[in-house]
Structure formats: C-alpha cells, structure tokens
C-alpha cells in the first residue's frame, strides 16, 4: 500500500454500519474503496445526493449525476437527490455521522485550516466550513507533513476553516485523537517510532498508555 492507501484504509475502519458519511475530494474519496463488504455506509455528496454509489462505468454514465468533484457517479438503490439548501440542512443539522477531509494545518486545540493560503491559493471554502461544524465526527485524513514541514501545529498559521472541530487525525504515521485534554497518539504505524512522530509534529501530544499498531 502507498501512503494514501494506508491512510484511506485506516479511515475506513472508523466507519460503522449505517453511518451517513461525507468524503472530501481527493484522498478522502479513496476511503470508499476500503469499506469492508459487511459494513454498509450511506454516502452523502453535498451537491445533492444521499446514497451515492461508485464511480460510473465508462459508457454507462447518467450525465445528470455527478459528485462534488464533478465526476460521473452512480446512485445506490434507496438513494435520493435534493437541492443545496436541503443538502446543507442535512449537514449543519447533525445528520452526517462523519466527515473525512484533508487539511493544510491542524492545531492542538482541534482548529482546522484547509481553505486558503492568503496571496497564494484562494480556492474558497466550498462546503468545508459547514461540514466540519455540522458533522458529528470530523476526521482529518492527510500526509503527516508537507515537504517535511509539520502540518500538525501548536497553533494554525493559516486562516481557520473552523475552531475546535477536529476529532481525529489519521496520517501515514499513525492516529491521533483530540479532545479537551489535547492530542493523544493512539496508534503508530510499525514503520515509525514515537520519536519519529514527535520530530514530524509541532503540536505537543500525549502517547496513549494503550498505544496500538496502526489498524490498516
């Protein structure tokens, strides 16, 4: 497995049968490939789908059905379409069990920055601000560092997407859980030591007494 597959595979283990889940564009989308067959989750796509299915087979696309990344997808039996106000009512209303998304920076207070690098990249927040505020569980799935620089910081330097919302960070090095007491390393990938993680992390974190090998 490559780094992205390791991360996506571990995220998939966090999801439970019946969960309503929104997966962000990019790496988070890969999580769907790692859901075991006995677990049935309901994927929500913020452009207006509940019960989103797999990518559409070439030549068999329904041209009116795309995901939030504008790729042709399918809808599962039992699914439905809705407008954007309804979609974000579902999201803000706490009806999404988990959202998985990438980050530019996360800090030890659970603050998230993932929508703008002032003066350099201004893509906009899209649905991210609503998703992280509304979803019951916010899972950040990302590489641990960016070109060797830590992304898990004492304090975000970029403008926030939201404050105090991140519940879990899953990287190729392991799993960190966040709560009022701060950040705790709960799982470690066997290729790395706790010292490796400390060297790649600016935020202070505790190591769980029950530190486990990363469940991938």
């Amino acid at each position: 497995m490559d780094v992205k597959q390791i991360i996506a595979s571990r995220v998939a283990k966090e999801l439970s049968d019946g969960d309503v889940v929104n997966l962000g564009i990019g790496l988070p989308t890969m999580v769907a490939d790692f859901i075991p067959p006995e677990i049935e989750i309901v994927l929500q796509s913020e452009n207006g789908i509940m019960g989103m299915g797999a990518a559409a087979e070439a030549g068999k696309e329904d041209v009116d059905v795309v995901n939030a990344g504008a790729q042709y997808v399918t809808i599962n039996p039992g699914g439905m379409f809705f407008d954007s106000a309804t979609s974000f009512g579902i999201i803000r209303g706490g009806h999404v069990d988990a959202t998985v998304l990438g980050a530019l920076e996360v800090d030890e207070k659970g603050n998230l920055a993932n929508w703008i690098i002032p003066g350099k990249m201004v893509p906009g927040m899209g649905g991210a601000m609503d998703l992280v505020v509304g979803a019951k569980k916010v899972i950040v799935a990302m590489t641990h560092t960016q070109k060797g620089k830590p992304k898990i910081l004492k304090e975000c330097t970029l403008p926030y997407t939201a404050i105090g919302v991140v519940d879990m960070i899953i990287t190729e090095m392991g799993v960190m859980e966040l709560d009022e007491s701060g950040v705790t390393l709960t799982e470690l990938h066997p290729d790395f030591t706790v010292e490796d993680v400390r060297a790649a992390t600016e935020a202070s974190f505790k190591v769980s007494e029950n530190l486990k090998p990363m469940n991938i």
Binding site: S84, M125, M129
Partner: peptide, 15 residues
C-alpha cells in the same frame, strides 16, 4: 470583487 461564502450559508441566504 470575489466574495467567498460557505456553501451552506450561500444556499440558505438565497433560500
């Protein structure tokens, strides 16, 4: 002049 608005807020403001 580009005014960026969270998607759910944009939808709800129009609603």
């Amino acid at each position: 002049d580009c005014k960026l608005i969270p998607q759910g807020t944009l939808a709800e403001r129009i609603r």
